[in-house]
Amino acid sequence: MTMSNLQKVLNSGAFVVTGELGPPKSAEREKIEHHGHLLGGVVDAVNLTDNQTAIVRTSSIACGKILVDMDIDPVIQITCRDRNRIAIQSDVLGAVALGIKNILCLQGDHANFGNEPAAKNVNDLDSMNLIRSLKNMRDEQVFIGGEKLEAPIDIFIGAVENPFADPFEYRAYRLAKKVEAGVDFIQTQAIFDMDRFERWMAKVRELGIHKKVPILAGVIPIKSLGAARYMKNNVSGMIVPDEIIDRIKAAENKKEEGVKLCVEMIKHLKTIEGVAGVHLMAVAWEEIVPEIVERAGLLPRPKFD
């Protein structure tokens, strides 16, 4: 089985950097390619969001195929919100057939956040049993319903965890459950409350989870005061402390302050035991990614044959 670039970098022990690309509300291939060019070479793999915040966008798998064509390693996000188990398993087979290997399992924001609030929320599976189901497809060659796949598939299964959701005391245990379900790597929700993240990581280490699965810590560069406030007030499951808002507010050059803050956070995360890398979500600000990765001292990225 061939490894994805993400797997190779993880296996090498290098500090991993993944990026994120938000597909457009259009079928403009050139837009996806443009963002691909910005991210390719400065990150190890690129997440393609699956109709993030329940807003209709180009399919994550279609975008993933475009990145495969550009020799960039995609991480396809799959939510449980829009598809039942028939569609999800079918899409996983399709993604693998298109050369995609990394698949990230998410529950998905509720449809009432997005631009189709009248949609039916499917949620046939949940993110946990989606992980287990994909593992069974790969390791046992079996579909959820029990029938066998006609040939093996090779996938690298990711999932998310949110240290900023509640009940806080349960969050590290829930991560352990995802490991039990069969996940291969974890990306976290974006971190702004470093103190809380460190408390969560302490519990993760206490349970020994960091030794079983690589954890990529989520970071978002703040582009403006408005963006910081929006994340604080409107994005579910996110905590943006007032100190962060105040720091951006006080800065003369807000974009530069956002970059500085992000670089500081990455450098700090690198020192935390059990953090295997960062997941840089600069959606709608993809052009800043090379500068952040450079200033964080993470260039050049490891290359493999």
Binding site: M128, N129, D166, R174, G237
Partner: peptide, 9 residues
């Protein structure tokens, strides 16, 4: 969800 809570709680 049968294995909640999700990250939106």
């Amino acid at each position: 969800m049968l294995n909640g809570p999700c990250g939106g709680s």
